[in-house]
């Protein structure tokens, strides 16, 4: 039975909005696992932290598996101290998005996140030996690589299947830079763009999105057409990245396609209705540029 994971909210949503979102997701029957925690910028962490206990409680009560995701880029002593606290967390699974967090787990079970560089069997085996019970693969990997890794994995293999893809992380904040601010004096302007700030070429072709220090795809990844094939090739879970849309309905579409209750084409039409203005892409899984959309024929 293939599971659905809701990734951590990567954007800077207001704490109340974030809490309401997770409470709503707790009631979504199609999600098996739900991640939370600040991944992108440690300056946001103080706003997220206060709501985490009540969200964990609510999600646990609803029968969800809860995973706390770590920061992606850990540089300062303060960020490393946070990572140590996270690694020591009791009774909740941790997702390592920086290799230091995986090391700090000291052999206890954890999830190897999509922002670690796990491209081959050797690295997967090393991470599993360190305690990874589940691995969410990098977005760049094509279906053949995914299948090759799934064949060798001892733990579960997860693949990113919906939403803007996290493509890069930096020490510099581009949301601030776009407003002539620096990261230190950022005024938390990244909160203005609930799904990221669109980035266009000089010919006004949108192709990237900025989420503070993170650069994402402009296109929304959708693997609705490839779910069945990937599941048959050993993928255990699919990850949906949260956006400011009816995520429970989005999860419903992915669940229905996985269960064979809904045709992928029909589901894609409905997904487009749920995400007005979104452009879809799936190129990576076909070994093509990530922004491309290939008609399903895996």
């Amino acid at each position: 039975m293939t599971s659905l994971t809701l990734g951590p909210v990567l954007f800077n949503w207001k704490p109340e909005a974030l809490r309401d979102f997770y409470f709503r997701m707790a009631d979504c029957p199609d999600l098996d696992t739900i991640h939370l925690g600040e991944v992108v910028c440690s300056k946001r962490t103080p706003f997220v932290e206060p709501i985490i206990p009540e969200v964990i409680e609510r999600l646990t009560q609803a029968g969800k598996e809860v995973v706390l995701s770590s920061l992606a880029l850990i540089m300062s002593d303060r960020e490393l101290a946070q990572a140590r606290d996270l690694a020591a967390a009791d009774g909740v699974l941790v997702e390592a998005n920086d290799i230091s967090v995986a090391a700090l787990m000291q052999g206890r079970p954890f999830v190897a996140g999509p922002l670690l560089n796990i491209y081959n069997e050797g690295t997967l085996a090393s991470l599993e030996a360190m305690g990874a019970i589940r691995t969410c693969l990098p977005a760049e990997l094509a279906a053949d690589a995914v299948a090759s890794l799934a064949a060798k994995a001892k733990g579960e293999i997860e693949v990113q299947a919906f939403g803007r893809l996290p493509l890069a992380i930096s020490a510099r904040c581009y949301a601030a830079r776009a407003r002539n601010l620096t990261k230190d004096g950022c005024q938390y302007v990244c909160a203005d763009d609930r799904d990221g700030m669109a980035v266009e070429t000089l010919d006004e072709v949108p192709f990237l999105a900025v989420n503070g220090t993170q650069t994402m795809s402009y296109h929304h990844m959708s693997l609705l057409g490839e779910l069945a094939d990937l599941a048959s090739r050993g993928v255990d879970r699919f990850r949906l990245w949260p956006h400011h849309v009816a995520m429970d309905a989005v999860a419903g579409l992915f669940r229905a396609v996985l269960d064979g209750k809904l045709d992928a084409d029909e589901a894609t039409d409905r997904l487009a209705d749920l995400c007005p203005g979104a452009e879809f892409a799936n190129g990576y899984i076909y070994g093509q540029p990530g922004h491309q959309y290939v008609e399903a024929d895996l």
Partner: peptide, 19 residues
């Protein structure tokens, strides 16, 4: 400008990446 080895912008656009 991105953390090295943690950037897929190139493959997103061209299909080929540093990693």
């Amino acid at each position: 400008v991105m953390a090295e080895g943690r950037c897929a912008l190139s493959s997103y656009v061209t299909g080929q990446s540093p990693n």
